[in-house]
Design a binder for these strands. Structure first.
Length: 214
DNA sequence: AAACGCTCCAACCGCATGTTC
DNA sequence: CGAACATGCGGTTGGAGCGTT
């Protein structure tokens, strides 16, 4: 692992079964949050950030393991086309999947599958710079529900806004002449559905159907 | 069997934003 | 109001595991 030397206070690298058990027990009793206090309270030699990440990406009961289904792939591809590399937003729309999972899956499978060039897209704010420059609006408030599902309030609103913007752009461009791709990083990948005027309606319906089938 | 290369994904880092005091 | 702390995000790294030579 990167910086394996560490500072002596915190362990790094893969989590052991025992560490997982300690963290899980702690979260069961005290709930999520106050991650920085966990090392002190439990004796875990992990930093708070590491504890949070381990819980969110692996130990949380809402996290789905295993291979991505065709439906999930399709959903991610569509959302990525709209949102770019805003993994938390995308993950918020893919039940049971975390931003890290979605990001890894995209980088290792989907980007190859689609032949996506690893360059910045114009309007999707995919780079960390551009998303950071967009300020608070780019932030997502993810909340784990009691049933283990994940909701995303700010993200929901933003997806809505992005879809509106995209839909508007589509209307503008399609009324002129040839359709223009939302992002310029998709070669040979043109999805007529995403460029329909009723883009948002279509996507929301797709998502509803998708979740109904889960 | 050993060496090598490649793939995949868990985990880390830096930074921005949000919250508390 | 501002500093300190907490949380969350996206990019990146590195090592385990697997296939190939």
């Amino acid at each position: 692992m990167k910086g394996a030397a560490g500072n002596g206070e915190h362990r790094r690298g893969l989590w052991t079964v025992e560490e997982d058990r300690i963290l899980t027990d702690h979260v069961r009793v005290h709930g999520k949050g106050k991650w920085n206090r966990i090392p002190k309270l439990t004796g875990l030699k992990r930093c708070g950030k590491s504890c949070r990440l381990r819980w969110v990406n692996y130990l949380s009961p809402g996290v789905k393991r295993g291979v991505f289904s065709e439906e999930e792939d399709d959903l991610i591809i569509r959302l990525h086309k709209l949102l770019g590399n805003r993994w938390s937003l995308i993950a918020g729309r893919v039940p049971g999947r975390t931003d890290n999972q979605v990001k890894n899956h995209w980088n290792t499978h989907l980007s190859k599958k689609l032949g996506v060039k690893q360059r910045k897209c114009k309007i999707n704010a995919s780079s960390s710079k551009s998303s950071k420059e967009s300020g608070a609006n780019s932030r997502t408030e993810l909340k784990s529900n009691d049933d283990g599902s994940i909701s995303c309030r700010k993200g929901e609103a933003e997806i809505h806004n992005v879809m509106e913007d995209s839909s508007e752009k589509v209307r503008e461009t399609t009324s002129l002449q040839d359709p223009v791709l939302i992002g310029d990083c998709y070669d040979n990948f043109w999805d007529p559905y995403l460029c329909a005027p009723n883009l948002m309606e279509f996507l929301d319906q797709s998502l509803d159907l998708f979740w109904d089938g889960m």
